[in-house]
Design a protein around this nucleic acid. Structure first.
Lengths: 161, 161
DNA sequence: CTCACACCTCAACCTAGGTTGAGGTCAAGC
DNA sequence: GCTTGACCTCAACCTAGGTTGAGGTGTGAG
């Protein structure tokens, strides 16, 4: 097979895909978007270095936390450019996400409590309902896509239909 | 002004928009998607009934919980069709969402704890990291769009796991 | 030599949840 | 009778995060 020759810590796109669980098309996409990088071999095929797997792990973990790729990219750009990132570098990045998670959890809990109250009264009224007017914030946000939560709410965590 | 005449609990699209904070374009969109309904006056303008505000409140609240519109629509279709929905009907619907919220919160908390562990070890490795392989689940999901979470992982406020 | 497979590029497409704009109607007020 | 403002329809566009497919290259095995 082409390109299956394994040099010392240098991986083809297929190998990275297998090891990371990230599809090849997503790897191409991430590269286009500047989240990962590669060099080419003589046959113009991508070759990835050791830290690519780390980056991908970080990207996946960040997505789980709900961070958009653009933000993840910005965070990755803070990594040391010349030397290979150390554990401490990754740990520093991850701790950022923890703060976000704490915030998200806090918001969801507040939402749940509000929901409980609202179920109690059965109101769901725009004037009174805590759920619909969470955190004092009314529907006066100007034009543009309406974000229901400060943190980009998108459908999900969803299974049954 | 045209259409500003207020009949007994019958609202124009602009009035509903003002009262609900939902844009007119979104109201049109929801109607196209079958989440709300209206009738027309002599001038072909939409008129909305009393329960529309409730429906909108429910839609908004559901979106906060992270439910996709299609699911919200399905839930709304369970409402009594002939009589006007009562508080109890709304409360029943809302309680469904509470279960989802509980689940989401639980997952986020697990994620946060995993993250804490991972920051501790600084690993972020595909083989070891709890974050990247949440809940024993490895990257062996076959073809198709790769979902990082079993439940449609999309950026933001959700995505638990 | 030929096959099969891994890889390449580029463009088009997808879902969600809407927004934006063009072009037209209707009714009230001056 | 003209203007103004609210409303109508329909089609095109938007962001995110990719996927899919067409058409072509590279290469190792048999």
């Amino acid at each position: 097979m082409a390109g299956t020759k394994t040099t010392f810590h240098e991986w083809s796109v297929g190998q990275v895909a297998d090891r990371s669980g990230v599809t090849i098309s997503a790897l191409h996409f991430y590269e286009r978007e500047g989240l990962i990088s590669s060099w080419r071999n003589d046959g113009n095929q991508r070759r990835y270095g050791r830290d690519t797997l780390r980056r991908l792990a970080f990207i996946r973990a960040s997505q789980l936390v709900g961070i958009p790729l653009a933000t993840i990219k910005a965070a990755l750009e803070d990594l040391p450019n010349q030397r290979t990132p150390r554990e401490a570098d990754w740990a520093r990045l991850s701790s950022l996400w923890k703060k976000r998670l704490d915030l998200q959890i806090e918001q969801l809990i507040r939402l749940r409590d509000d929901l409980t109250t609202c179920i109690g009264c059965g109101c769901l009224s725009f004037k009174r309902c805590l759920l619909v007017n969470p955190g004092d914030q009314l529907a006066t946000e100007g034009p543009g896509p309406r974000r229901l939560l400060p943190g980009t709410p998108r459908p999900d965590l969803d299974e049954a239909e």
